[in-house]
Design a protein around this nucleic acid. Structure first.
Lengths: 243, 243
DNA sequence: CGGCGGCTTGACTAAATTCAAATACCGTGG
DNA sequence: CCACGGTATTTGAATTTAGTCAAGCCGCCG
């Protein structure tokens, strides 16, 4: 597939992404070796993969997850356009988690050695990559707080709030609704809940006119109640680097 | 307090830590601006602290945590000698989590701008710092899997197994026992359980002759059963950088 | 000795899971 | 257009797990 033109990348038009200077852009361009289209529901990285590639999600949704040997699955985080995929994995012997697409997705593929060259050639970009790693860690910290200390309804409110804000930041809203390409099973697996209980809690949020999610559409009916319910702190979404 | 001598640091004698070359060592030495001793049970970093410092834990135990506004606390991870403290926080506006000591602890204090200088001056050390960040993220991923998808006994087994292995890696065992400076309340807060239920599960593990933890002493009675119970994967502990 | 923090236990309650079954939605092929 | 099959959602009931409340105990320190 044709190489994308990084300096012209439409993602960069979004205000969430930090401006990159000429040098950085040309370096990023050099790191990219291809562009890949993956259908919905496919694995981008398998748990345990040796030497997996590094990608940037260009379009579509995906998620990171881990499984226990008896099949129980825990979703660690959801991935949206602009997210780096497989960067942590590249630093170790094998991928510590799997990544699967939720929708058809386009990926920018990085050359295998680009990680190291990043550190050698560009302190700024190395810093950016580290920033993204630290940021991802922060998100998982938040999720751990959610799963460990919030009850079912609070968990759902916190997760939906988070996804809503992330999607809004990259202009993925249509009016007041959001097309969330996930099922209730994904919500359950992200929050450490059973599918049935997830459904019941979701219905409760709907009954209370707080939010409505079904068939992949999320509508925030009462954002304020949502925030209260989730004990959600509005850390202003920082500008993030795009590599 | 007297500056420590990094090249002679006794921590570096442990086989878990990667060899650092002369240049790296001297740079690390330059970054260190002091050495600090903190009593047990004190906060090193408070949630929300603006511009917190970066430290390396030199001796003692600590833990990272977050709280909800009504006081519910979630421990994110435990910190042992060699761990970086506050590195992620330094990259953002404010510390996203707090850090508290479990024992008296000694900290190597880094100069405030050292993070950035690291990236500028030494690709190797920058890579190491990123590696540590990515590694920490991996641990939180594991914890999220534990809290989200394991039941109470499995959670406890997984946590104790993890702490045991970490402590062993830096030669903190005394015979087959480990001095774990935590209370059952810490275990509960790390695993998203109530104190009472934690106690009951711990007693069950003891009754089954799998492990025994009380008064800060952990004895592994049946490591194999422990592993099975926790569905624990023995990823060989990699050599890690020490900054 | 008294007090305090941490551990232990039992009884009760609440939350979440499991099981089971019905219903709605969506794309395919007749 | 409708029937069909598969996936996703919804609901109720029974069960299990974990949380809450309350009290007693243990060990240590002043």
């Amino acid at each position: 597939m044709k190489h994308p033109n990084c300096p012209q990348c439409p993602l960069r038009r979004s205000a969430v992404f930090k401006q990159a200077d000429k040098a950085a852009l040309s370096f990023i361009q050099k790191m990219k070796t291809g562009h890949q289209r993956i259908p919905a529901g496919h694995e981008v990285i398998r748990e345990g993969d040796a030497d997996p590639r590094v990608y940037t999600l260009y379009s579509g949704w995906a998620f990171r997850y881990k499984t226990l040997s008896d099949g129980r699955r825990q979703i660690l985080n959801f991935l949206l356009p602009g997210d780096l995929i497989g960067f942590q994995a590249q630093m170790f012997d094998a991928a510590p988690h799997a990544v699967q697409t939720l929708t058809e997705a386009e990926l920018c593929v990085m050359s295998r050695r680009s990680i190291w060259s990043l550190f050698e050639a560009s302190p700024e970009l190395a810093f950016d990559a580290t920033w993204l790693t630290a940021h991802e860690e922060g998100v998982v910290d938040d999720n751990l707080l959610t799963v460990g200390r919030r009850n079912a309804t609070e968990r759902i409110a916190a997760l939906l709030m988070y996804l809503y804000r992330r999607a809004r930041a990259i202009d993925l809203l249509e009016r007041d609704a959001l097309a969330l390409p996930i099922t209730q099973a994904h919500i359950a697996d992200a929050l450490g809940l059973s599918l049935v209980h997830t459904n019941k809690s979701l219905r409760r949020l709907h009954r209370l006119n707080i939010c409505h999610f079904s068939h992949g559409r999320l509508v925030m009916l009462d954002p304020r109640a949502m925030r209260t319910m989730a004990d959600y702190f509005d850390s202003p979404i920082a500008q993030r680097p795009l590599i």
